[in-house]
């Protein structure tokens, strides 16, 4: 992992560094930042398409070494989130399948039967709501008449 250059401002108790958006997607940066908000002030700037500027400011007074260590921790957490995002993305369909299969098989059988029945019973197929049985010529003659009426 790269170690981006950083700028330390002791007076402001702050360390600032830049991350290339191609290597570090915004989702990972936001997730990592979220983990830190209970103990440091985090501010983001920049362009998610190019480069993000991360500013970490201690809630307690920190020296230079501690600010550098904070940056190190942030980068470690970023690495964690890169891994988590990849793992989640790659296993998304499997997880969706497992959850869906678990929940469906948990439903009472009368509920499953009812939901499949309700789809069937919406319309009596013999009424031919989609006009499947209507011949092409008849259907188009109907449509032409309707169009004439509209234009009048």
């Amino acid at each position: 992992m790269q170690n981006p250059k950083s700028k330390i401002n002791i007076k402001e108790n702050q360390i600032v560094f830049r991350l290339n958006s191609k290597n570090y997607p915004l989702e990972a940066i936001l997730n990592a930042a979220y983990v830190f908000i209970d103990r440091v002030y985090v501010h983001l700037d920049g362009d998610p398409e190019k480069e993000i500027l991360i500013s970490l400011k201690g809630k307690e007074r920190l020296d230079k070494k501690q600010l550098e260590a904070l940056k190190g921790e942030f980068l470690n957490e970023l690495l964690n989130y890169l891994l988590r995002i990849e793992v989640a993305k790659n296993n998304q369909k499997i997880r969706e399948y497992i959850v869906a299969a678990s929940l469906v098989s948990s439903l009472p059988s009368n509920v499953i039967a009812q939901s499949s029945r309700s789809e069937e019973e919406t319309v009596d197929w013999r009424e031919d709501p989609l006009e499947i049985a209507v011949p092409w010529e008849e259907k188009h003659a109907k449509k032409a008449k309707e169009k004439q009426k509209k234009n009048k």
């Binding site: 470690n76 790659n90 499997i94 997880r95």
Partner: peptide
């Protein structure tokens, strides 16, 4: 840190959370 997210083997790594 002793892992590299760029080298994940997608065929063997199932879903997990970690700490």
């Amino acid at each position: 840190m002793k892992f590299n997210p760029d080298k994940i083997d997608h065929s063997t790594v199932g879903f997990f959370r970690y700490r």
